[in-house]
Design a protein around this nucleic acid. Structure first.
Lengths: 107, 107
DNA sequence: CCAATATGCAACTATATGGTTGCCTGTCAA
DNA sequence: TTGACAGGCAACCATATAGTTGCATATTGG
């Protein structure tokens, strides 16, 4: 669960997709997370193990199923490392504004 | 400057150290950034090129020197991807509190 | 019990990546 | 001009890593 594990875990597109899926719906099983992906179940298992070791994903066993949950804390730590407190607020405001403008475009 | 480039760039400890150095003092030259590091100048050059391609570092030529500047925007985008607006505020508050407690410890 | 379901483990392969060495180019100052 | 300084480019090597296949284990429902 070192910092290096977090960055290595995030370096792969497949793993980021898995985090996206958990962000959209938390608490999915391995089978759920495999659905529609162009790789074997074993590949997904390995990716989830890496995400879990990095503390980006927490798990809970329920019978023969294993539920997966996204943990946003290490992600926040990344931002804290290189973005100062005030700069953070400024960038957050900019992001909000950008989202606002984009959603207006689509109306 | 795709999202993948950013994560790949951050996946290496040496590159994160370079970002730390720029965060501590912005606008350093290649020579500055090499100092005290246990690798060749050419290795640092390659790392900086990767950081620049990922838009994490911006550069400006000045005579025979090249100055390097940290760009925090892609870092912020990472946090935005998996942390909701309200969750972001909550995590930021927690981080501030944690920092506060830690600084108290050291007094 | 037993077959189907859900997940775990291990060996193997191809490619990506970090680091090196050697040499080239450009800029400054005496 | 010319030597020294700052940086750039290319080929090469060792290791890390994403993906695969094949087999094993564990839980549930009939």
């Amino acid at each position: 669960m070192s910092m290096d594990d977090v960055f290595k875990a995030l370096a792969d597109e497949s793993r980021r997709t898995l985090l996206d899926r958990l962000h959209a719906r938390n608490g999915q099983t391995l089978g759920d997370l495999c659905e529609g992906l162009a790789m074997s179940r074993q590949a997904v298992t390995k990716h989830l193990a890496i995400l879990e070791a990095a503390n980006l994903v927490a798990t809970r066993r329920q019978g023969r199923e294993k539920l997966h949950f996204l943990n946003p804390v290490p992600i926040n730590d990344i931002a804290e490392r290189w973005i100062g407190k005030f700069e953070r607020d400024r960038l957050a405001a900019l992001s909000d504004l950008k989202r606002q403008l984009e959603s207006d475009d689509h109306e």
